[in-house]
Nucleic acid binder design. Structure first.
Lengths: 211, 211
DNA sequence: TAGATTGTTAATCGATTAACAATC
DNA sequence: TAGATTGTTAATCGATTAACAATC
């Protein structure tokens, strides 16, 4: 992971797909995989796959290919999936509750430990075993429990205000579901999930397809 | 929209952001915007913005810039947001229910008219006013109601089977939340929402930030 | 060893940025 | 008209693909 500093974002966004297929291969008990076989599975070229991986190290072996388990573990490390992060969700409406139930957190090394909402009718509720707490107690909670990640599932109007609270309380990253661009300092990582934009793209291609 | 055939996907993925900022400008009552001002807002270069828009037509005017409302409406058309599509959701668990409540559908010209689940405890439930129906009735329902879009919110194990049903029933597009790649014919548009991959990317950058 | 496949350099392709003539 | 800003061409930059020597 030596030269990991300036790997381009286009490369990084391909890593999860490699990781996903390697997990499948592990499950099937496959030991060995070539870049060509990975190419057939992922749709990326073999050349691209070798280039991508070599940004992080020479994980393969000439004449053999890649050891599935080894490469899987390397990607776990590269993606930081072995570090456990604690997260809270701001906004305990439908989306917040669904996200609280999202299975994918465990795979990514995240744990949601609380939801926050300002609606007194929701405060006190439990989703799985995660309690919904009053928004006003959020900043203290984050500081006290050393929360790493804030998740925004509020409407866009409240998103920046919530982000500001998260940031002032010291989170290191924000997972943002609100359809707005957040202002945040450089050392706070913001990852956006743009459900509406994804729908727009679907709509765009549907339209093309009819013409 | 004449030369719209082969606009690159990287351009298309920027269109929703333009659209979003134009909507904001409309709300504020701004009539006029230059590519430079749009650049300041979106973070894309003015040059790139002009290039992007010119893939679809010359919407601006020299010395003036772009008329906000006109450009907004052009983007609505380009993105196909004026066509109404009917959608059903396969999988009425937490995520399916949250998606059924998702406000963004209206903006994108989508309407969710039914959910489907195989769990008898959920069948019959109403989310908003959208009924959860038995999976076994899904194919007939899609054909009868001329459903355009299938939304997959099941676990990955059921995703391809559900997609196959959607396709055989005649949907034109699939919005896929399952963390798997779907096989589908070319004339069925698949748009994926990769929540787990988004988390992995967040994890990746969190890790870098500590080093 | 011979065959296979990597790691890596070089060539190509595509996307972004810069520049400027056209023109409102 | 003079100033502003587009539309578009040319230059640059970065990402992808091709090729092949290294080597297991």
């Amino acid at each position: 992971m030596e030269k990991s500093n300036k790997v381009s974002i286009t490369v990084i966004r391909r890593l999860p797909k490699y990781y996903r297929y390697l997990a499948d291969l592990m499950e099937k008990g496959t030991n060995r995989i070539s870049s060509q076989e990975l190419s057939n599975m992922t749709g990326f070229t073999a050349s691209q796959i070798r280039q991508d991986l070599n940004n992080f190290g020479g994980f393969g072996q000439q004449g053999y290919g890649y050891n599935v388990e080894d490469l899987y573990n390397q990607l776990r490390k590269i993606l930081g999936l072995e570090t456990l992060y604690h997260a809270v969700i701001g906004g305990a409406g439908n989306l917040g509750q669904a996200i609280a139930n999202f299975k994918g957190f465990e795979d990514a090394g995240f744990k949601v430990v609380s939801l926050f909402d300002k609606n007194p009718n929701i405060v006190g509720l439990k989703i799985r075993d995660i309690e919904v707490r009053d928004s006003n107690t959020m900043i203290d909670y984050i500081k006290e429990h050393k929360i790493d990640i804030g998740i925004i599932t509020t409407p866009k109007e409240s998103a920046q205000g919530l982000a500001d609270k998260f940031i002032s309380a010291g989170v290191k990253g924000i997972w943002n579901f609100a359809p707005t661009d957040l202002d945040a300092p450089d050392d706070v990582i913001v990852e956006n999930v743009r459900l509406n934009e994804s729908l727009f793209i679907l709509s765009y291609f549907l339209k093309r397809d009819f013409e």
